[in-house]
Amino acid sequence: MKSPNCELETLRSGFNCLTIFLSSESFSLKHLNLSDNNLKDSGVELLSDGLKSPNCELQALRSGFNCL
């Protein structure tokens, strides 16, 4: 995945790794679909931490929860 030619289409991993993928300089995750996941509070915190990273390049996030 560190190769510049890597085009990851699907990633199935725990939320612990999510922060690593969102904040890493080595990975450029552009689209993330979490619609079939149950984030709970700890998952939301990990997602939030990753999104705050200056290295985060996420352009589209799809989730299964509604924010009111």
Rank of each mutant, 00 (worst) to 15 (best):
L46T: 08
I20F: 13
L8V: 11
S35H: 09
S35N: 13
N37K: 05
N55A: 01
N55I: 03
H31W: 07
N38R: 11
S24P: 08
L34Q: 02
D49S: 15
L39Y: 02
N16D: 15
V44C: 13
I20K: 06
V44N: 04
N33R: 11
L47P: 03
R12W: 05
E9M: 07
N33G: 11
N37P: 00
S48H: 03
N55V: 01
L11Y: 07
C17K: 09
C56W: 01
E9Q: 14
C6A: 15
K52T: 01
C56H: 00
L51Y: 02
K30W: 01
S13M: 12
G14Q: 11
C17E: 14
L47Q: 07
K52R: 15
S48W: 01
S26E: 13
E45N: 12
K40R: 15
N38Q: 12
S53L: 04
S42Y: 12
C56V: 08
N16Y: 10
F21P: 03
K52A: 08
S42V: 10
G50P: 07
A60F: 09
L51A: 02
N16V: 12
C56R: 04
A60R: 10
K30M: 08
S53Y: 03
T10E: 13
L46S: 14
P54C: 01
S42N: 10
